[in-house]
Amino acid sequence: ETFPLDVLVNTAAEDLPRGVDPSRKENFLSDEDFKAVFGMTRSAFANLPLWKQQNLKKEKGLF
Rank of each mutant, 00 (worst) to 15 (best):
E1L: 15
E1A: 14
T2V: 11
T2L: 08
T2R: 09
F3D: 04
F3R: 04
F3H: 08
P4K: 02
P4N: 06
P4G: 06
L5K: 06
L5A: 06
L5Y: 15
L5N: 04
L5Q: 05
D6A: 13
D6R: 08
D6W: 13
V7H: 07
V7F: 15
V7L: 15
L8S: 05
L8D: 03
L8V: 04
L8K: 04
V9E: 04
V9L: 12
V9G: 05
V9R: 13
N10G: 11
N10T: 09
N10V: 07
T11H: 09
T11L: 10
T11P: 06
A12F: 07
A12V: 09
A12M: 10
A12H: 10
A12K: 14
A12P: 14
A13T: 14
A13Y: 12
E14A: 12
E14G: 11
E14M: 05
E14D: 12
E14I: 11
D15F: 10
L16P: 05
L16T: 06
L16N: 04
L16K: 03
P17D: 04
P17A: 05
P17M: 05
R18Q: 13
R18F: 13
R18V: 14
R18E: 13
R18H: 14
G19H: 10
V20E: 04
V20L: 08
D21G: 03
D21P: 03
D21E: 06
D21W: 04
D21Q: 06
P22H: 08
P22D: 06
P22Q: 07
P22R: 06
S23P: 05
S23D: 14
R24I: 07
R24S: 09
E26I: 06
E26V: 05
E26P: 03
N27Q: 15
N27K: 15
N27S: 09
N27F: 09
N27Y: 10
N27I: 10
F28L: 07
S30M: 02
S30P: 02
S30K: 03
S30D: 07
D31A: 07
D31W: 02
E32A: 13
E32K: 09
E32D: 13
E32M: 09
D33Q: 06
D33F: 02
D33N: 04
F34Q: 00
F34R: 00
F34M: 01
F34D: 00
K35H: 15
K35P: 01
A36G: 08
A36L: 13
A36D: 11
A36S: 13
V37Y: 03
V37Q: 02
V37N: 02
V37C: 12
F38R: 00
F38L: 07
G39C: 09
G39L: 07
G39N: 14
G39S: 07
M40H: 01
M40L: 06
M40E: 00
T41F: 02
T41V: 07
R42F: 04
S43L: 13
S43P: 09
S43I: 13
A44R: 08
A44Q: 14
A44F: 08
A44G: 06
F45W: 06
F45S: 00
F45E: 00
A46I: 10
A46T: 10
A46D: 11
A46E: 12
N47F: 08
L48H: 01
L48V: 01
L48A: 01
P49S: 05
P49G: 02
P49C: 04
P49V: 01
L50M: 12
L50C: 14
L50Q: 12
L50R: 09
W51T: 09
W51N: 09
W51L: 09
K52A: 12
K52T: 12
K52S: 10
Q53M: 02
Q53R: 08
Q53E: 00
Q53T: 01
Q53L: 01
Q54F: 11
Q54N: 14
Q54I: 15
N55F: 11
N55D: 14
N55E: 15
N55C: 15
L56A: 04
L56R: 01
L56T: 02
L56P: 00
K57V: 09
K57T: 03
K57N: 02
K58F: 10
K58A: 11
K58E: 12
E59N: 06
E59H: 07
E59T: 08
E59F: 06
E59C: 11
E59D: 10
K60V: 13
K60M: 06
G61L: 06
G61Q: 03
G61V: 01
L62G: 05
L62A: 04
L62M: 09
L62K: 02
F63I: 14
F63A: 15
F63G: 15
